[in-house]
Simulated assay, not measured.
Amino acid sequence: MRLLHTSDWHVGRTFHGADTLDALVATLAEVAAAVRRERIDAVLVAGDVYDSAMPAGRHVAALSAALAAIRDAGARIVLSSGNHDSPARLGANAAFAAAGGLHLSTDALDPASWRTTLDDEHGPVQVLAIPYLEPLALRAALPEAGIATQADAMRWAMDAVRALLAEAPGRSVVLAHCFAAGVAIADDAPRDITAGGLDVVPTAAFDGIDYAALGHLHSRQVLAEHVRYSGAPLHWSFKERTPERGAWLVDLGAEGLEAVTWLELPVPRRLTEVEGELEALLGDARLDGTEGDWVRATLTDRLRPIDAMRRLQSRWPHCAEVVWRAPEHERSGETYGSLVAQPTDAELVGAFLGHVRAGVGASEAELALVADALARVDAEERDR
């Protein structure tokens, strides 16, 4: 059996304010073409299908068309919800969709609904698509489970997965949307899963599974031969770790995982970063050929140039970000970005407590309460 591991489609997301829908539609059309060319049996989407819990009508229509094209190409689709998705909206009509070969997994509290059985000449493959797990919601619904962190939530979920697999032994694939231990965290990673800090799932949580298809990071990563992130099909930030965009081709044989190979997907517009004084950049022949790229310019002029974005866009129409870093900031060891960096919500609360207590900051217990409160607010905002 051949599977295609993808994730983080983020339908509806913009790139520094620029619409990306046409580029994403073209890339997903390449996925459908690859299904035919590579004889792919099923396409896996490990969370963050939409970028918003309330996608616009044209984004829903674009996703529906892309999924229909993949089905027409001959692959079944297994899709789980991520932290950007509204489980209720994404999972609407899941039973009806399953009859057409689209398997939507969005109910975090119903492990039985995570399972899809695929068959080949060697027998069944059990695909368990775990939706994004919100520890706060699980703790409220399952007080006896002792769930406080993402690691606890995934432990509970994988216990449920193994119980389901015990009922039907055989080859197994798990989809999950989380930070797993061992990832090379970069700025392309979404904001910390918990308000108080990074909460990681041990890679050992996926021991005994033939393949774990992970989502949540936007660049590909290999944590173990059978535990991988595919990354997103498009670049969503200048800070993403790898220039490649694509998906993992996963081959399962009679005894389990046989091979995993990288399938390149086209990059509609490359990312380019340029640095220097404005006039020098505008005339730099070494940058010829980059005019069609997304460009992030770091300007090092002694004084902030006037109308810098308009002038940069005269050469690079898709210049999306301008940063000014004056030389005096470099000499002082302080970058311009650090001068204007915005603190996290948890840092703001901690700074306030330190202020009103004459320098005595929050205790660990207080920080935990703050993290819970902020996570609750985040969860309520996503469910609106």
Rank of each mutant, 00 (worst) to 15 (best):
P135K: 01
V377M: 09
A371N: 05
W324I: 15
L367R: 12
R37A: 14
D188W: 00
R191Q: 15
I193M: 13
G100K: 02
V173E: 02
L164D: 12
A326R: 11
E258P: 08
E279D: 15
C319N: 06
R2D: 02
E167M: 13
G283A: 14
D19E: 12
R71Y: 02
V45T: 08
G215A: 00
L28M: 11
L90A: 03
L102Y: 02
G197S: 11
T242S: 11
A157Y: 05
L118P: 07
T194E: 14
T203R: 13
A181I: 07
S113D: 10
M309N: 10
A33F: 00
A308S: 15
G208V: 01
D72E: 14
V127S: 09
S52L: 05
A326H: 14
S64G: 12
W262P: 11
W262C: 08
R58I: 08
T300E: 15
V349D: 10
R286C: 13
A163D: 14
V43D: 05
P87D: 13
H355C: 06
A94F: 07
A212P: 00
H16G: 11
D159I: 04
A379V: 10
I306L: 10
A26N: 09
P268D: 04
H226F: 00
L271P: 04
E264G: 04
E240S: 05
V161M: 05
V250P: 12
A232R: 00
A204S: 14
T14F: 07
D378Q: 12
V370Q: 09
A129G: 04
C319E: 14
T20L: 13
D8M: 00
R2H: 03
V43T: 05
L133C: 11
A259I: 05
V200R: 07
T27P: 12
A373Y: 03
V31R: 01
R241G: 10
G91R: 02
L165G: 10
D41M: 09
A341V: 13
H218P: 10
H59G: 11
W324G: 14
P317R: 10
G354T: 07
D207N: 03
G82V: 02
R2N: 07
H329L: 12
D284T: 08
T14H: 10
S172V: 03
L136P: 00
A373N: 08
A326P: 11
G57R: 03
R228L: 04
A88T: 11
D8A: 07
L90D: 07
G197V: 05
I193F: 07
E273L: 05
